[in-house]
Design a protein around this nucleic acid. Structure first.
Lengths: 104, 104
DNA sequence: CCAGCTATACTTAGCTA
DNA sequence: GTAGCTAAGTATAGCTG
């Protein structure tokens, strides 16, 4: 059972790649959950893969919304400061995204 | 240098919590990058914390859009199948999110 | 194909400067 | 506050059922 060093490159073998994806996705989800708990922060992630019929979303739909709703606060502050750099712009777009989600 | 076992609970000490957040956020970002490279998938994450003035977004704005644009494919398929469970509903909302982002 | 195992690779808590 | 170290602890590659 010799584990190769991770080579940071696309896994060409189909089944290996899929298996790898499933394992790492699980690990990633767990880590997000941990970070969220340990530091009391909001976070969310979306992953798309050809191996699954649906995008993978963390956290649950409810949590997803709760997290996103918090983002509203930040962009509003940025806006008041009248920042126009790319990053604040992205933040502002995120607000719009939040609004859309909250309409459900 | 005795490292305590991770207790999965909110870190009450302010500076410890912030330091922890920064470290784990970095690790999470790296893992997302790895998964994306290794498996050729699209993924994105957003993290909000009181320790930073802006939400943390992975990957870059450009990559973020590229990833989200891929989601369009899946929800459209779900829609055709006329699925109405919560998960497919979420997928459909994601489409809307994508549309919003792509207007930039 | 998926779940479980376990040795090894990687991550990171606590510390130092 | 930030950056870097290193051992304790965790994740996971390759394998097995």
């Amino acid at each position: 059972m010799i584990r190769k060093k991770v080579k940071l490159a696309y896994i060409t073998n189909d089944s290996s790649r899929k298996a790898n994806y499933k394992k790492r996705k699980k690990g990633l989800m767990r880590k997000m959950s941990e970070l969220s708990t340990l530091c009391g922060i909001g976070a969310c992630a979306i992953m798309y893969s050809p191996y699954e019929s649906r995008p993978e979303v963390w956290p649950s739909r409810t949590g997803f919304q709760q997290v996103l709703s918090k983002f509203k606060m930040i962009p509003e502050m940025e806006e008041r400061k009248n920042l126009v750099n790319q990053e604040s712009f992205l933040s502002q777009r995120t607000v719009k995204v939040v609004e859309q989600l909250r309409k459900d």
